[in-house]
Design a protein around this nucleic acid. Sequence first.
DNA 1: AAGTGATCATAG
DNA 2: CTATGATCACTT
Length: 242
Amino acid sequence: MAFVWYTIHPHQYRKGFHSSMAKSPPKDLNELMQRANNMAGIRLADIAFDNNISVPEHLRRDKGWVGQLIESELGALAGSKPQPDFIHLGVELKTIPIDHKGKPLETTYVTVAPLVNIQGLTWQDSVVFHKLQHVLWVPVEGERSIPVAERRVGTPILWQPNAIQAQQLQQDWEEIMELIALGKVDKITARHGEVLQLRPKAANSHALTESIAEDGSIQLSNPRGFYLKIEFTQQILTNAFG
DNA sequence: AAGTGATCATAG
DNA sequence: CTATGATCACTT
């Protein structure tokens, strides 16, 4: 849908886009949003060129490519730390693949789920809670019919959960964590949870990590991660553009 | 076509 | 393995 592109000025941006060298972290929220807004309407090939990054033919073996490209353009600190992308701003960056109608094509990965040592862990102490406190959503065309290089970035959305969304997230998180605490992690499916779901998050189905068994002892299970369901992220986009 | 379970690359 | 970035691809 066209609404995703409502702030786009293709010709103006295309001309003066290439120029920046290595990006430094944005000094404040305004600078971050200015950079994000300047990407709206730009093709991934142009952003890649600007960052001296090559464009893969497809994402099958480069599933995190788009996210890392946008991180580079926005000056997010590289590295794999369990911290917000822009720790000094308290903002988490998430790219989200959308179809031609502006609907998310995939669920959104949030974080790995803790499966042991979770006694006393509360919603407000959780990584899910903290990561979703402030998110910069960057929509990107994701239909496979569009060559990766030609996919365009949409208008960014700076989001914070409203009261209802916060409640939905907390309820799902608490129900899922309760099952994990009871040693039923291997019985949890992606169908649990209204807006937040638990799914495998590993190199493959044979990867193992410690978890709680039904008798309270330690067992091994496939690592899991928390993901936001499509309807939830679709609502975020609708609320911003609709 | 949607949704769930599986998978890919990289850094430490 | 853990954690970052996610999308793939098979089942329903």
